[in-house]
């Protein structure tokens, strides 16, 4: 009754892994761009814009990614918009990513002393120039370790794209398990693949963090 786990299955899983990586990269890219604007909105001079950004963040961070995926999936369907699964999953992950990265980056920008902003303004730089030349280069260093750390969450959470039918690693494992029914083996291999992607990122984030702390003394 049970078939054997074969090379074909392994290839199928590796293919799923590839899509997991592609989806992660896409989400990071799009979510990063959107997250940058979320960060800008959070530090805006306009109170209403700060409020809007805060509400956005609280909604996204107050609901499960799974629910966000469903809303997007059914929402697009309801309005008769048909998009390929990659786009639907990518859009869902982008929203999720933008809120978390926006918040991480705002924290980094906020940790740069206000006096740096003032010094730049006193020299006649515009707010945008001050941000670009003085604040962001310094914030970048501080933001890198938590950003890499978030990447781990991101890769893991692409597994939820499986519920809206996107064929990535987790979905591939489910498909194989449905025919083989060897869950320990199949999900074990899938977990191992995730680990191979995530663990180096975790370790990298930790070492960046250590270096940053040493640098600051």
């Amino acid at each position: 009754m049970f078939g054997a786990f074969s090379t074909n299955h392994l290839i199928y899983l590796l293919d799923g892994l590839l899509w997991t990586v592609i989806l992660s990269a896409l989400a990071f890219l799009l979510g990063g761009i959107a997250g940058f604007f979320v960060m800008l909105a959070r530090i805006s001079r306009f109170r209403w814009l700060r409020r809007v950004a805060l509400v956005y963040i609280q909604i996204v961070q107050g609901t499960p990614l799974l629910i966000q995926m469903f809303i997007l999936y059914f929402g697009l369907g309801v309005f008769g918009i048909s998009v390929p699964p990659l786009a639907a999953a990518g859009l869902g992950m982008m929203v999720y990513t933008s809120s978390y990265l926006g918040e991480i980056w705002r924290g980094a920008v906020g940790s740069i002393a206000k006096t740096q902003f003032e010094a730049a303004e006193c020299l006649g730089l515009t707010r945008w120039q001050a941000l670009q030349d003085v604040i962001l280069p310094q914030a970048l260093k501080i933001a890198t370790p938590p950003t890499v750390g978030f990447l781990v969450q991101l890769v893991k959470n692409t597994s939820l794209a499986s519920v809206v039918g996107f064929l990535e690693l987790t979905r591939a494992a489910q498909v194989i398990n449905n025919s083989l029914f060897q869950p320990f083996l199949v999900f074990g291999v899938a977990a191992f693949f995730y680990f191979c992607v995530c663990y180096p990122l975790s370790a990298w984030s930790r070492s960046l963090e250590r270096k940053l702390n040493v640098g600051r003394r």
């Binding site: 003032e118 730049a120 730089l125 120039q129 030349d133 310094q138």
Partner: peptide
Amino acid sequence: RRDIGMVFQSYNLFPHMTVAQNIMLALRRV
């Protein structure tokens, strides 16, 4: 602010820039 220069108790130099870059920043950008 182009007509006023200000110096602070805590210097507020930009730590990620060399001395030259600190001085040149506003000359170039402003």
